[in-house]
Write a protein that binds this DNA or RNA. Structure first.
Length: 209
DNA sequence: AGCCAGGCCAAGC
DNA sequence: GCTTGGCATGGC
């Protein structure tokens, strides 16, 4: 489907490369990216950054440190990202399970077995932290592409993912950038109340709500 | 000053 | 099976 690529290049041209995920610490990229993926669940990146900065300040981007820190203390540190009790538990379990595993063995099912990690978080970790060609689907993806006319309104996660993976070159960098651009577009124009007037996808969009 | 964010899970129909 | 409520902070 050429439309998917047309939309990609339109968004890229409009917004430029998004540079996800910018590492702030960089000592343990796999861990740092995974933490960001967990912390950003239903949470704005602004708030996630504060939590990440706290973690870095405490030198906590470390499997060992996170495994040993008392959970109540972790609560305080990641509090700005919200849902801190659940996220602390998830981080604890994630660290415990990934600490000594061969990263080649980390797949979707393995990640989904960790409580608090669902499909989107698992796929984000696979794509951004492990560089696997997995397309990440989120609420914006469904909203934008159902409005454009490519998806059913209530399309299920895995179906949506298949549409993108079947119709795009299986390219890690393309997948990374496309998802990031989708998020950007969702924030700027394709909001719940869409701003269709000046939308860069206006000409490609079936619905023009 | 309400609505929403780069979801997920468990409970309830 | 599908829908709903709870989780929590901070920005707009």
């Amino acid at each position: 489907m050429k439309l998917l690529e047309d939309i990609y290049y339109t968004l890229l041209n409009e917004y430029g490369y998004q540079k996800w995920w910018p590492l702030k610490d960089g000592k343990e990229p796999f861990l740092e990216i995974s933490l960001g993926a967990i912390l950003t669940q239903n949470t704005s990146w602004k708030n996630v950054e504060k939590a990440l900065e706290n973690l870095i300040k405490e030198n906590l981007i470390s499997f060992e440190k996170l495994e040993n820190i008392p959970e109540e203390l972790l609560h305080q540190i990641i509090k700005p990202a919200g849902f801190y009790k659940r996220k602390s538990k998830t981080i604890k379990e994630f660290v415990k399970k990934t600490k000594n595993i061969d990263r080649k063995k980390i797949d979707r099912d393995f990640l989904l077995s960790i409580k608090g990690i669902g499909k989107e978080t698992a796929d984000s970790i696979l794509l951004y932290a492990l560089e696997k060609p997995v397309f990440v689907v989120d609420a914006y993806t469904k909203r934008i592409f159902s409005r454009v006319g490519i998806l059913e309104k209530n399309a299920d996660y895995d179906e949506v993912q298949i549409v993108f993976e079947k119709n795009l070159p299986k390219d890690v960098n393309l997948f990374k950038e496309y998802h990031a651009l989708i998020v950007e577009h969702g924030k700027r124009f394709c909001r719940k109340k869409p701003l269709c007037e000046n939308c860069p996808l206006k000409d490609l969009c079936q619905k023009n709500i």
